[in-house]
Nucleic acid binder design. Sequence first.
DNA 1: ACAGTTCGTCGAATCGATTCGACGCCTCGG
DNA 2: CCGAGGCGTCGAATCGATTCGACGAACTGT
Lengths: 337, 337
Amino acid sequence: MNIGEIARRAGVSRSTVSYALSGKRPVTEETKQRIQAVIDELGYRPNAAAQALKEGRTRTLGLVIPPASQRLTDMQLGFVASVVEAAARADLDVLLSPSGGDHDRSFERVISGRRVDGVILMEIRLEDERVVRLQQTGLPFVTIGHTANPHGICWVDVDYATLIARCVHHLADLGHRSIALINRSAELVAAGYGPAHRTLAGFAEAITARSLNGITLTCADDAAAGETCIEQLLEEHREVTAAVTINESALPGIQRALERAKLNLPQDFSIAGVAAQHSAEGFRPQLTAADVPTLEMGTSAVDLLLERIAAPETPTRHLLLTPPISLRASTGPAPIR
Amino acid sequence: MNIGEIARRAGVSRSTVSYALSGKRPVTEETKQRIQAVIDELGYRPNAAAQALKEGRTRTLGLVIPPASQRLTDMQLGFVASVVEAAARADLDVLLSPSGGDHDRSFERVISGRRVDGVILMEIRLEDERVVRLQQTGLPFVTIGHTANPHGICWVDVDYATLIARCVHHLADLGHRSIALINRSAELVAAGYGPAHRTLAGFAEAITARSLNGITLTCADDAAAGETCIEQLLEEHREVTAAVTINESALPGIQRALERAKLNLPQDFSIAGVAAQHSAEGFRPQLTAADVPTLEMGTSAVDLLLERIAAPETPTRHLLLTPPISLRASTGPAPIR
DNA sequence: ACAGTTCGTCGAATCGATTCGACGCCTCGG
DNA sequence: CCGAGGCGTCGAATCGATTCGACGAACTGT
């Protein structure tokens, strides 16, 4: 069931079948129909490996995701979903590589051997070995997130520093004087995970600018950790009346801990943050937050990658988004004590 | 940077390089080292497309997931994660196809053109066109879930009918006489989605066996729908003291609606169900539920698929799991009225 | 009427690997 | 001392597509 078989049955040469299919040279309408009839009858589809070998491209994109074992956040899921969808729209397949570590078989398999035409990388660290590795290989790639020195790299990111600072300013405007930052996990901070560090910087700057009392905490990426994090915060820092966070996965736990402490939002306590819309709207009351536009970011990442694949030597482009803060119901005037 | 280049630099023929790499014929140790040195220096990796073309296999599995646009449930995520992980352990890549509909470009692209060695399908309907299509092509595949007539198909599933019946019996033992079933969405039921129908059957059977009053409801797969579903239930069926569900995504909404109605679990109301462990433990109080062993199921699906790829004519096998119900805190004796 | 196009088709080369048959060399046994 | 057999290597065929150059037929213009 290969192109030769089709050619034989249609009584033409293999090249004619190929041209009939691709339209790269004219083929008589009658011949074309005869070929198409045979193809339909046999259900023929060109062998992808042979095409990839000859054309030098696989029509496949690599998507490097965090190790599958750990639960993905809503934001990460949003990226995966939009990348997969954008790729499908462009008639491209997506090859998954669950790779967190640096020397990873799966990652190497995907990027070497010309298995994909390009790669999208997420969960970027300030210093990221995978980025270095990709630069060595010369394979086109785009990152969602950016390294400390993103020169010569295509990327898409959200401006965590500015966004978290805006959250702090918003809370300061409402009269809050002591604000806590609930960051991602201590491990991620230690590993140099970009958003965690940029958030820290943006928070510190805004706290200083408004002469506030700032508390910074790290919190593992799950509900239970969020719960204990808030418990500890309420115990050790009674003066705190508001918190900002980028830790989506901790939100359900944060909510439960506040409920148990009989703190009503936003009368007794305010929370704001940066999160996927789904997480923000799942919070009760709904979370005042900068909604990370995962759909747009994933789509743009694919677009940038396709451009880069088409013209690898073109100057690199990037996209730094600062989505507006959606004022929902979780922030209000500071309580009077 | 192909095998010829390596051969030239190592001063041997291409076949010798190939044999040195595969070990399928003896190669002198000294020659082997010379070749390896060149390979390391140039960072050579064999071209995957050429290998796939010659060997007739791609070392890639296809994974058909629900359309990326809709949020995946915890259970679906669990399947994806464990399939990807199991594939990685077997040094296989995973190609994603977001295909819910029946005539889908992405699905066709993945299964035709010999792009993958086998396919794993999830979210199976009682009559599923994708299954029919795969049977036509002869491509090895395994389903997570099973069709109405699963003869001659490899599959892995959880016994929804039995599990939901056990939940009902458990509640009946606790004295509940009126029990509601919160099923998946009406659309899924209409589309012939297997678990929804089998749950319905198991529920009806258990209700009859214990001479109970059973209410069946459908509920879209999101928190908001869960909320309105419970509100409506409490309004229209005041006699109901317990519910069983397979709708994970509705759980957060169910929880909120019960809280708002000032019903304490399990004193005033009981809930049990079938869910991924993560969802069950995320519920407050923790949900008495049959924990769907997503890790085991995904892993088994990959194992079955690999067997099938290795020996396509072997008799089909399947796995129907009935995990025990974990008694947690969401079920208790029926309230006395 | 004839040279120059254009059109439709074909044969052969090519992409980068694997693998089969062959061949030379060395060793060992009779 | 010579034939058998094993070892290490090589050349060529092959997988299934694309694509280039060529070629005959029909068509155009002078």
